[in-house]
Design a protein around this nucleic acid. Structure first.
Lengths: 214, 214
DNA sequence: TGTACATCAGTGAACGCGCGTTCACTGATGTAC
DNA sequence: TGTACATCAGTGAACGCGCGTTCACTGATGTAC
């Protein structure tokens, strides 16, 4: 399944090389880490000559940035689906959201690496930046709904809450849930660690479970 | 200040090449990221022939692992000093501890990269592993003192608390406080974000500020 | 429907480069007596 | 204190390799008439 869409190999023209290169990058990142693959590698993996990728990407960085962008798009989809507009209750939806974040890091370690660990500068590429912000917007929207449940006095800023949740989750994902060798071993599933952490945090905000729309 | 200890260049024998190579690695990581430097680079930076490093390190990975190990040692020192056995009060000491973590990531981005982002397998090298565990032990010790303040009923496991704090802090450090290009911009200082996060978390644990030994 | 032509997406050979690594070597340092 | 020798820590030349990149090219595809 080297090229998943049009099936069967074709002749002189590959037909879908851009997609194939992205898949190659994902496979090679999974194999050797984000720093461990080369443009030539990707070409070889896709079964084309080393010059072919230049028709589609200026250089290796542009390829990685494209992978990261696609990663953020899929990430946004997954988070949106998990949050599901806060249904049926904010707390249960929020918990799903966190688990979905972690699940993505575990299920798609290659995307996750390209997005967060490949050293691509998010701000340099507007498309990448937009994709990244769309993902964060899901978190932020959820945080807004959550703080809106609280009495107006002493309501924490939604942005802060979103950043906190993001940080906790990203911290757990980076330290304990990645697919590669740098992962630390942990005496419990990372999902449990995250769930407890988020619950304690929300309690600290003054959001006991029963008050949050259950 | 290429070789800081014995000053002045010497002749045929460098005299302190191992140290110089470590410093070279730190400088080059700062410049190009953990993946962006080579063994030959380090030799060049230290002003020796490309074969010289082989007298001190088997390969590039061994050099990076050594840098990471030293990083963890310094990290342990900084954390220990910040925690200061919980004096004068657990909450204020805990806050110092978190800030110190963040400060290290910001002050020593090269060490931090080598420790957490260079893809070295912690478990492969016993010395590295021990150094890493010593750093975590400081966090864990602090968490133990903290939960010991709580009524025995419903006391959370200290290990969990330590892992939570580690994750939050590492998440913030990775996303917002690193020195390199992958850092996201943030509408507030990362230290403030962390402080708020830890305070909310501790409140969620049932540790109001005044009950914690102040 | 057929044909001529333009354009597109790939080839494959070639290049310069820097890296990792080995090797016999040599200058400097330490030590036994 | 001096000398002979062993050991240590570096040299520098050399190698094979794979990468990035360019280039003229060519087969396949699309389009105008």
């Amino acid at each position: 399944m080297k090229w998943g869409k049009g099936d069967g190999p074709r002749g002189y023209h590959h037909g879908d090389l851009k997609e194939a290169l992205v898949r190659a990058a994902l496979a090679l990142i999974a194999e050797k880490g984000p720093a461990g693959f080369t443009f030539a590698d990707a070409a070889r993996w896709a079964g084309v000559s080393p010059a072919a990728p230049y028709r589609h990407f200026r250089d290796r960085d542009e390829l990685i940035a494209d992978v990261a962008r696609r990663g953020f798009e899929q990430f946004t989809l997954a988070l949106t689906k998990a949050w599901d507009d806060g249904k049926p209750g904010l707390m249960v939806a929020f918990d799903r959201l966190g688990k979905s974040y972690l699940d993505f890091a575990k299920r798609e370690p290659s995307y996750y690496s390209a997005m967060f660990e490949a050293g691509v500068s998010i701000d340099a590429d507007p498309q990448l930046r937009a994709a990244s912000e769309a993902a964060f917007a899901v978190l932020r929207g959820a945080a807004e709904k959550l703080v809106a449940q609280m009495p107006p006095k002493g309501r924490p800023p939604a942005l802060m809450v979103a950043l906190h949740i993001w940080s906790m989750t990203h911290g757990i994902a980076s330290l304990f849930a990645r697919g590669d060798a740098a992962r630390r071993t942990l005496p419990m599933p990372p999902e449990d660690l995250l769930e407890a952490s988020v619950l304690i945090y929300l309690r600290g905000l003054g959001l006991p479970e029963q008050s949050a729309g259950r």
